[in-house]
Simulated scan of single mutants.
Amino acid sequence: MNDYYKAINWNAIEDMIDKSTWEKLTEQFWLDTRIPLSNDLDDWRHLPENEKDLVGKVFGGLTLLDTVQSETGMDSLRADARTQHEEAVLNNIQFMESVHAKSYSSIFSTLNTKTEIDEIFDWVSENEVLQYKAQRVNGIYRDGTPLEKKVASVFLETFLFYSGFFTPLYYLGNNKLSNVAEIIKLIIRDESVHGTYIGYKFQLGFNELSDEEQENLKNWAYELLFELYENEERYTDDLYGEIGWDEEVKTFLRYNANKALMNLGFEPLFPDNASDVNPIVMNGLSTGTSNHDFFSQVGNGYLLGQVESMADEDYDF
């Protein structure tokens, strides 16, 4: 029997969310090499040593999570794609997760010595709390059901990244490391699409389950979230305890954990809302960039034009 290959036809769309998400992601395309990170060197020189150490560890942790997402996460989701167009969107997401991971290395190469970079990656490999969350999510990607994999992906995209995102957003609000923060804002802009899109695909499958199956899966998701949150508390204490930002970061984490649940169509777990989060950080969380024309700093060869900020209604499924 001959193999049969079906050519993808973008003129026959089964789910318009696939098309709108593809267009949003390609509209937002960016590369780290076009952002003048060296302009942050003066700010970097004036940071205390314990804050420099924090920044290195934060970005090391984010690199690990993006690596999991690009090497394992999207492959596991792609195996259960409902449409060819969904598979194409997941290919795009996988590539951008690799761009995100590489972006942190660009930050390291600008701010850190080779010895410091090696120490950061050694810390990533040896930190048990960080490794736990990567291994827990990766285990679900490997052995979970299609819907469990989507839950894990949304929790990673919309919740687990944010213990790391707090730091650059805080500096941005205090007029420090603005170009580093621009990369983070671009990553957050991508992740806001990734989390809502995969959450939407989860809801399609979830709505096809029986009432009993829905209840069991919902309970599993809440238990997983709380387990990951407890681990994230330990991670936060490890990173931020000495500096004294730990409680503010935990509030930010709970706020984003609720966002992850909402992406899945579930009710929030924690009482925290936007008004409880440090307003400096919330202001930075806006997915627009502070200067849409910052690409022009590297010449006219990379003009993307203005990219609109993600608005909640764009992905109100």
Results as ranks from 00 to 15, higher is better:
4 Y>F: 13
15 D>F: 03
19 K>S: 05
28 Q>Y: 12
30 W>H: 13
30 W>D: 03
30 W>C: 02
35 I>K: 00
37 L>H: 01
37 L>R: 00
43 D>G: 00
46 H>G: 02
47 L>E: 13
56 G>P: 05
59 F>K: 02
59 F>N: 05
60 G>N: 09
61 G>F: 13
66 D>I: 09
72 T>H: 12
74 M>N: 10
75 D>Q: 08
78 R>A: 13
84 Q>I: 06
94 Q>R: 11
94 Q>S: 14
98 S>M: 12
100 H>K: 07
102 K>T: 02
106 S>F: 02
110 T>L: 00
110 T>F: 02
111 L>A: 06
112 N>G: 02
114 K>T: 10
115 T>L: 09
115 T>Q: 11
122 D>I: 05
125 S>G: 15
126 E>Y: 03
130 L>R: 09
138 N>L: 04
140 I>H: 00
142 R>G: 03
149 K>Y: 01
153 S>Y: 12
154 V>Q: 02
157 E>Q: 03
159 F>K: 04
162 Y>W: 04
162 Y>Q: 06
163 S>P: 04
178 S>Q: 10
183 I>F: 01
183 I>T: 02
185 K>W: 01
186 L>D: 01
190 D>R: 00
198 I>K: 12
199 G>W: 01
201 K>F: 11
202 F>P: 08
205 G>K: 04
215 E>V: 03
221 A>C: 09
224 L>C: 01
224 L>F: 02
228 L>C: 12
232 E>M: 10
236 T>D: 10
237 D>W: 13
239 L>W: 03
240 Y>D: 11
241 G>V: 05
242 E>D: 12
243 I>D: 09
246 D>K: 05
246 D>S: 08
247 E>C: 05
248 E>Y: 09
250 K>T: 05
257 A>G: 08
264 L>C: 05
266 F>N: 00
268 P>T: 04
271 P>N: 06
275 S>T: 10
276 D>T: 10
281 V>E: 15
285 L>E: 11
285 L>P: 01
286 S>Y: 14
289 T>S: 07
289 T>V: 15
297 Q>K: 06
300 N>Y: 15
301 G>I: 04
304 L>Y: 15
311 A>G: 07
312 D>H: 04
314 D>P: 00
315 Y>G: 01
315 Y>C: 01
